[in-house]
Design a protein around this nucleic acid. Structure first.
Lengths: 124, 124
DNA sequence: GGTCTAAATTGACGTCTATCGAAACAGGTG
DNA sequence: CACCTGTTTCGATAGACGTCAATTTAGACC
């Protein structure tokens, strides 16, 4: 089940990286600009689906901060649908994926948690 | 434009309150349950529209933590659409509204900022 | 009461979205 | 090579979503 990911080749492979900027100021600091709102809303929109949010949570909560698709695909929808949701999360800049051998591992993109936490930090 | 809200009658009126529970644990603490994911996803979904996010930000960033609808309705969509979006944010438990005289004032529901910030706090 | 303004509601319209099955494709293993 | 894991594509469908014009509701004021 690849829960134990001891594999023969663990070399670094081509990452599918999304550019993750700090995104946005705290929501209560000042009104977001149109551009800021569009970027931040895209992230929230990606998290706005229960299935996607569970996938994200499973990855974020997984040991070593990364999870194989085969470990998280028991969310009640078909496998292509899982892949579809993971792609949405990737496109939103929330996840990165990396193929190592047979399996593909997902992890939360760098600084995403901090960036989103900052959105809700009280600045007043 | 009611920017100065000094009015004759400022008595307390029937609130349209949404029950705002702490909602959910940090996303990286453990995988969310189905119920937790549905509740949290509803909030993120409400914030997942650029217009709604700007409305929310304008209210959250407004002086005294509250804003009259007439102060925030210049987001480029019609008045009914603004009202529609504010209703969505209310139903998601993110905003509360209160009518005082002619105008309706919105504010961020209690503990919403802290609750959402907690979702992205690093617990590992 | 009549009129004005503020905001919510209604109804309709077009578009986007989530989901699926099936099939094809790409990388890696044995 | 066959086999496995995961992604992608292709319809296809049912439902949700954003938007608006028109209307209604609610309150203030004369």
């Amino acid at each position: 089940m690849c829960q134990n990911r001891r594999m023969s080749n663990t070399k670094a492979l081509p990452l599918i990286q999304a550019d993750v900027e700090p995104c946005c100021p705290p929501l209560n600091e000042r009104p977001l600009t149109v551009e800021e709102a569009e970027r931040a809303a895209a992230m929230f929109k990606a998290l706005g689906d229960p299935i996607r949010l569970r996938l994200f949570s499973q990855i974020a909560a997984h040991a070593d901060g990364e999870a194989c698709v085969c470990d998280i695909s028991d969310v009640g929808v078909s496998q292509p649908t899982v892949s579809h949701h993971l792609k949405k999360l990737r496109e939103a800049g929330l996840l990165t994926s990396e193929r190592r051998g047979t399996w593909v591992y997902y992890r939360v993109a760098p600084s995403v948690m901090a960036s989103l936490a900052r959105s809700f930090s009280v600045s007043g």
